[in-house]
Design a protein around this nucleic acid. Sequence first.
DNA 1: CTGGACGCGGAAAGCCTATTCCATTTCGCC
DNA 2: GGCGAAATGGAATAGGCTTTCCGCGTCCAG
Lengths: 343, 343
Amino acid sequence: MVAQEARTVTLFDVATEAGVSLATASRALNGSARRVREDLRLRVLEAAAALNYSPNAAAQVVARGRSNLVGLLVHEIADPYFSAIASGVMGAAEKSGLLVTVASTGRDADREAVHIAAFRGQRARAVILAGSRLDDTVSLERLGQELVAFEGTGGRVVMISQSKLPVDTVVVENHAGARNLAETLVGLGYRRFAVLAGPPGLLTARDRLAGFRAGLAGADIHGDSVDVVRGGFDREGGYSAMNQLLDRGTEARCLFAVNDVMAMGAIAAMRERGLEVPRDMAMAGFGDFSMLRDITPTLTTVTLPLEDIGASALDLVFLERADKPRSRRIRGEVVVRASTPQR
Amino acid sequence: MVAQEARTVTLFDVATEAGVSLATASRALNGSARRVREDLRLRVLEAAAALNYSPNAAAQVVARGRSNLVGLLVHEIADPYFSAIASGVMGAAEKSGLLVTVASTGRDADREAVHIAAFRGQRARAVILAGSRLDDTVSLERLGQELVAFEGTGGRVVMISQSKLPVDTVVVENHAGARNLAETLVGLGYRRFAVLAGPPGLLTARDRLAGFRAGLAGADIHGDSVDVVRGGFDREGGYSAMNQLLDRGTEARCLFAVNDVMAMGAIAAMRERGLEVPRDMAMAGFGDFSMLRDITPTLTTVTLPLEDIGASALDLVFLERADKPRSRRIRGEVVVRASTPQR
DNA sequence: CTGGACGCGGAAAGCCTATTCCATTTCGCC
DNA sequence: GGCGAAATGGAATAGGCTTTCCGCGTCCAG
């Protein structure tokens, strides 16, 4: 028995096996503009199948000058908000024959830049940035440069959240959603509010707070009567902000947490003190991830069609780059549940 | 003004700019075995920075014959179980300078095969298969062939869940965990059990059921006194299985759902009928995703260190392929919470 | 019957990088 | 100072594929 060198089979092998040239084999396999006579085409296909040929994608990328990879940058893939978006992106990508490479940045602008550079190296077809930007001109500038470099390789850039850079964007209407929520809550009879507002620089958090305030203002409820507490944009942030609020005391009868997981943290903080939602405090969140309908009490929130958002982002990838960046606006919908009963 | 063709900058440009040869530039940039004189090295680095050079990863892959991509196959990225594992894999990958490409299979064996073929085309360094196998010899066989072909390109294969194929595996000790859980529940005073058991063919579900039964058998509680209902391995499955169980009536005082999201579905089904956990029925789950501590009541379960599982899988990627597949065993830990009070 | 248009296979160039193989320089040591 | 060994720069090649360009055969119109 001869020791077999496990060489991988190349297009050359397929061509030889089929008795045609490399060029013909290539054309037969990926149906180029040029046509190949039917019998040859079949011979090539058969040969490829017989040899279990799998084209070397890297070589194709080198030859074509572009890949079919899409880079998806999220803050944290384990966060249900991002994993739902990722699911939408990946579902749409599969339909379009694209592969999705995901990277978590942990909200770190530097790692973001590193990953974009890596995607540039991959000659990725596009990069999708999911997640809120910070209100930080320096890092925004830096990101912009990185993205320009990326576009220089022919790739597309799509952002999800705010339209702060001149790239196509799926804009989440945080302001409008929060305003509607405020109006709804006022309609339910609430007058005194507290807000767990997230970190100061985070645009998403800021927009939601501003929208909520705008909604209250429409009902003549003004800023000074609203208790605002800052905190991280995650469960822990909600938990500690709520503790802060409870420690210092509040007259609010209804709490708005600018993100659902913060609301969950807040509920946990209340429970530890023997307080109950909505008996001791009504509560509303924002962002709706599916698990929310299973917590007790079910939580009033503004639902966002996260998977659609991801899919929309991938749609934008296929548009030609234009001078004027386009945006798709996604509106959330207020859903009233048990946590905010009529007063 | 001259129309600028936006050609991407290549290694050749860097070499020219630095006044050295291509070979030297290459060696300077990725520190090969060969050394480059310090001043030249610095010149190259400067030139690269000045031109904002980013190596063409695809060309590197072609030249080196292997990539730094890791393919991760999950059933559904939006499922917290898988997104937590993905988070672990991605965190570890980043430390090792690897990129992670994720694909969702939706438990479809064909799509699984398609994706593995795609990863083979990418010359991925490794593919990690997360998620339970089905007890289906045909598709298992098919998968095995696909994986052999993948390994033929020099890639590594790591599975997470059961060790059913001759590849390195992170084995989740479902049987032992469920047995411990059963023993714990018996210790709390429960004697009559029902199980929401998941689909018949799914190995993970099967192992947990078998382990649970084994634990009960140790306490002389035998099969015929346990109500077993089949259902999907997700929230909907738990919901409908629970409805089935309640429709036909049961004497069980404690329910074991073989997976946490099924337990959540079951709780929802009970709530719709005005039933409460644990008053009307105690309940335990399996798999612990972090949100669980925030539902009411907090749920007894077997926690799995999902992020560690992902990280372990990536560890295995770096081991040399060996004749005997290795396995890392991961044991869950029983956590008793409010849903199963002492009786 | 002839000439041009068209269809199609094949040779070869090109994509970008890593690495081998020479050629030259540098260095250590007697 | 001279010699061999070690270090190091550079030309050329490899790697797998796509695509351009060339040339030949076929078909149809005149």
